[in-house]
Computed example of a mutant assay.
Amino acid sequence: MRQRLADVAAQLFTDRGYDAVAMVDVARAAGVAQQTLYNYFPAKPDLVLDRADDMLERSRRAVADRDRSTTPAEALRSQVHGDIDHFAARDAVFARGEFPAQSVISASLRRYALAFRNDQAEAIAAAIQQTDPAVPALVARAHASALTTVMQAVTDGIGEAILSEADLAATARGLHVDVDAALTDASEAFRSTAARFAESS
């Protein structure tokens, strides 16, 4: 039922755009009561960014539970590459109604996406403080923000490729290369920073 409702919503968003579709429209198109829809998706943004709390927790846990020889960027590398592959494998027409494309089109959804990235950065920063207590809170927050910027750039790149009907496989290959470069740079910076504060503590 959850997947069916999400698919119906994605089709409506494809046809009309996120901002023009109300929750009642999704319920009617799916042939269910509004309360049934709300049981699965408490708010409209959840229809395009399903299980946002799980995504946030997954990134937090990857950083908090990483081996101490691994940087936060390295811990998140497989997750970011997995997101690229997931979206690149979607049907291009159907994907127009999903989060990456709709967050490029819709100003309200864009605000929601950026608020989510802010929360994600705070969670990652807290994990860094847990694993590397010598690193100041502001430095941890700045590093976490850089990592979530990479994640959002991937989402934007996929969304723009979907909307422009670009070759998703080629887009994914380019994003994989760019992500590796960005995360390697972030990883090197973190190692240097963490070592400097560890020596001074």
Rank of each mutant, 00 (worst) to 15 (best):
166 A>G: 06
180 D>S: 15
156 D>P: 10
157 G>M: 07
183 L>P: 14
176 H>K: 08
173 R>K: 06
172 A>N: 06
163 L>E: 10
197 F>D: 11
172 A>M: 04
193 T>D: 13
152 Q>V: 01
181 A>S: 05
190 F>T: 12
154 V>G: 02
191 R>G: 04
197 F>Y: 15
199 E>H: 13
166 A>E: 15
168 L>F: 10
193 T>H: 09
180 D>V: 08
165 E>H: 11
179 V>S: 12
194 A>F: 05
160 E>W: 08
184 T>D: 10
174 G>Y: 00
171 T>N: 01
194 A>R: 05
187 S>Q: 09
172 A>S: 13
161 A>K: 04
177 V>I: 15
191 R>C: 11
154 V>W: 01
186 A>E: 13
173 R>Q: 14
169 A>M: 07
182 A>N: 15
184 T>Y: 04
188 E>R: 09
155 T>L: 03
173 R>C: 05
192 S>T: 13
154 V>H: 06
196 R>V: 10
198 A>H: 12
188 E>H: 14
169 A>K: 03
172 A>W: 06
186 A>L: 10
169 A>N: 09
161 A>Q: 05
166 A>V: 09
153 A>T: 12
156 D>W: 01
195 A>C: 04
178 D>K: 13
179 V>L: 08
191 R>Q: 10
169 A>L: 02
171 T>Y: 03
181 A>C: 14
175 L>C: 02
183 L>A: 10
